[in-house]
Design a protein around this nucleic acid. Sequence first.
DNA 1: GATTGCTCAAAGCA
DNA 2: CTGCTTTGAGCAAT
Length: 671
Amino acid sequence: MESRSYHDPHSMKESAVLDVKPLRSLAPMLPASLGQKSTFCPSNAPPFVCVTPLGSFATASAYPPGFCPFFSSVGSPQDLNQIPVEHPSYLNEENGFPRASGGTTPPAFYKEAVIIDSSGKTTKRFSNYSTFPADSSATESSKRKKNKSRQSLADSTLLPSSHDPRESVEVVLSTFDALRRRLMQIDDAKKLRPDLKAGSIMMSNDLRANKEKRIGPVPGVEVGDIFYFRIEMCLVGLHSQSISGIDYKTISFVDQEDSVAVGIVSAGVYGNEEDSEDTLIYTGQGSSNNDDQKLERGNLALEKSVRRANDIRVIRSAKDPSITNGKIYIYDGLYKIHESWVEKGKTGFNTFKYKFLRQPGQPDGIAVWKRIEKWKENPSLRGNMVLSHDLSSGIENKPVCLVNEVDYEKGPTYFTYSNTVGYPRSISSVKPLQSCMCPSACLPGDANCSCLRQNGGFLPYSSNGILVSRKPLVYECPATCQCLINCRNRVTQVGLHLHFEVFKTRDHGWGLRCWDAIRAGTFICEYTGEIIDGIRSINFDEETDYVFQPMYSDPDFKWNYVPELLEETGNVDLSETPKLLSFVINSKNNGNIARFMNHSCSPNVFWQPVLHDHGDDRYPHIMFFAIKHIPPMTELTFDYGRRPAEMGNHMNPQREKKCLCDSVKCRGFFI
DNA sequence: GATTGCTCAAAGCA
DNA sequence: CTGCTTTGAGCAAT
């Protein structure tokens, strides 16, 4: 149990978790004018206002509504000569779905959505797309069903009843990844490729967005978005080649048809690609080991794109440090090919080279990654924006940076950094958690492992520590187990493994973000503080800015896989909601990075109850996990929830805070 | 720990 | 309908 005054890196004195006495006041450290009563931003101002989950990208979008890639970005007369006569499908699409064949019918997506609730019952929810002709996609689906024993689920399940392309893309990605995680859990021997298997299931059920290729931006995909598998980019229509690096499409231009490139993946496999933020030297395709590259297919399309000067989406890649040989794909926005040439490769054969230039005015993509790399090499680069290099004073495995890039406030209100939870009384001895006898590590499928049995027969985490499914309660191995601390069933006990940063937001106080890319299902952190027994003991009229309440407010939020897609129905317990927890955690005086996480109605983080050091399921640990893939430096947010109706009388309506998130799902207010 | 080689892959194009 | 092209992702060995 450790807790330390966050501002005092020299003090190694430890205090008991419930000792809330300040070790030292914050004020003496600050210039007189910047004390706790700072006029710039009073430290007792409510720091919690909602934030857009898209960060600055949302407002800084380079593409206003109605954006046409051929008319805007580079508006030279030369470009205008190259406008295609008939605009192909990429224009005027209001949603992320392909047009039905024929072109005049509305997009062919779901007539209704089937919601699978926690009890396993299915309920139908009709979308508001009432004008949709019943079977305008008949040709499509009959083609599809020809050699499929399973019916397509796309028109009957899953996809949200929303016209928001962003939401469609996110549902596709989340459905895919949940499926992938489950496949990995079922077949831990890894005889199959879970990504390909899951991708194939998605494809055969037509669970994809932006099926039709297009030039320019892809609805619902934003610059900076990250992907962990090539197939993910296929499913959302960003890059339709599952393996090949060059994606191309035949377009009708003024003079004639041409097959031009629409996107490339620069995975660095051919080497010698220039590594600058706005330029990229890309090598054409074809094995350069035993023959000259030929001017056909992708290479030919790139060559045509040099003359047509059309926008080309560029996906760059980076190493995923959490996995051996792991790769992350980063959508870096639109580029144009500036020039091309032929060059002798290392093996002496001709290769095609293409110089890509990034179109100006786009949000940062790979630039964010490069910036972070520089900070890691040289921490002094950010100068006096960094208020503390480690807010946790060494308590956490990884330092927690404290920065302010927007004003002169020198830090959040005083608190004691503590990475453990304080209980009102000792409960650890009351009810110990059952422990297993597994030597060194718990293994999947081991019927003798009691920890596995408690979790329903499956390890709750995959081999790389990713949470597979949300459940009412996750049972990790307690210290009394024979297995070691690196056992796969101890993911949340080992502390932080990401480089976090507490930062001052522009309009809603302090927030939390991360230097590292975070894959969906990754453990973020625990919510620490003092546990206060019984919600009713909290006076809601008083300050609740740093109080965590275990509440749910989005009954439609589903993170787990859809069992129908695996023909796995009935016998699987997929309930995600924990039973009502009647405690709150107060982190006002003691807390960790979790206390800085702001609310959003479209969050990227959720909480999951976990037991590991005691067996009292009334007081589980509150652990946060990533809902989706989160690019570096994106603010981390979770849904603060809504107080149950029964609590209404205890609430002062004025305590409700106005939510500023730009989410289409924004509820307007939160606790 | 980082790199290399090996294997079996799926989707879209021709 | 089928073969061809592409090189991804995971793993074992170095």
